[in-house]
Amino acid sequence: MSIPVPVLLTFLALSACQGRTTTQLQTNFLKESIRLLSELLEMKVSCDKMNVTSIFAGDKKDNDTEILCKATTVAWEGRSCHRHLEGIYLNLFNLIRSRSTVHKAPCPVAAGNTTSLNDFLVDLRRVLQRLVKDQSSK
């Protein structure tokens, strides 16, 4: 398993920061994920048309933690497409671990509606940007 150096360094630095608040750690994982998503979307990888489970479709009853947990599953399943997805998976996994004792990432996702990997990444980036904005307004 090859982990991109910036992701590994971020993970190690954040892991070493025991005195920092959970909110700061979560914000850093969110921002790093947004950066990775932006880079991946700019690259236009060949598998961006690959179908993945659409976790953003249907009713909106899932809370943010459930959405992030399901997103870890989709990122894990799509990691063969691009190495940035491994970094996104690790960041989301650590977010879930710090946010919830109930959810254990990766979470099961129901088969059904699918979307392109590119559309999933765009939607995920939008959700993560909203979460960063929500945290900064607290």
Rank of each mutant, 00 (worst) to 15 (best):
M1I: 13
M1S: 15
M1F: 11
M1W: 08
M1E: 14
S2G: 08
P6H: 09
P6K: 02
L8H: 10
L8R: 14
L8K: 15
T10Y: 03
L12A: 13
L12W: 07
A13G: 12
A13L: 13
A13T: 13
A13Q: 13
S15P: 00
A16P: 00
A16N: 07
Q18T: 09
G19I: 03
G19Q: 09
R20N: 05
T21Q: 07
T23M: 07
T23Q: 11
T23L: 10
T23F: 00
L25H: 12
T27F: 01
F29Q: 00
L30R: 14
K31F: 00
K31I: 04
S33Q: 08
R35D: 06
R35V: 02
R35I: 02
R35E: 08
L36W: 00
L36A: 10
L36I: 02
S38D: 14
L41R: 06
K44W: 01
S46E: 14
S46H: 10
S46K: 14
C47T: 11
C47I: 01
K49C: 10
K49D: 15
V52K: 06
T53E: 12
T53S: 11
T53D: 12
S54A: 12
S54V: 00
I55E: 01
A57R: 07
A57T: 07
G58A: 05
D59T: 08
K60Q: 14
K60I: 03
K60C: 07
K61T: 15
N63A: 01
N63I: 03
D64E: 13
D64K: 02
E66V: 13
C69E: 03
C69M: 12
K70P: 06
A71K: 01
A71V: 05
T72V: 13
A75I: 08
W76F: 15
E77T: 11
G78E: 09
G78C: 13
R79D: 10
R79G: 02
S80D: 09
S80H: 11
C81R: 03
C81G: 04
C81L: 03
C81Q: 05
C81D: 05
R83Y: 06
H84T: 06
H84I: 03
L85W: 09
E86L: 13
L90A: 06
N91R: 02
N91W: 00
L92M: 12
L92W: 01
L92H: 05
F93D: 15
F93R: 15
N94I: 02
R97G: 03
R99N: 10
S100K: 00
T101N: 14
H103T: 05
K104R: 15
K104F: 09
P108V: 10
V109T: 14
V109C: 14
A111N: 11
N113Q: 15
T114C: 03
T114H: 05
T115Y: 02
T115R: 09
T115Q: 14
S116I: 05
D119V: 07
L121G: 01
V122I: 14
V122L: 09
V122R: 10
L124C: 06
L124H: 04
R125Y: 00
R126N: 02
V127C: 03
L128W: 02
Q129G: 03
L131A: 04
V132I: 11
K133D: 00
Q135S: 14
Q135F: 07
S136H: 10
S137K: 15
K138L: 10
K138G: 11
K138S: 12
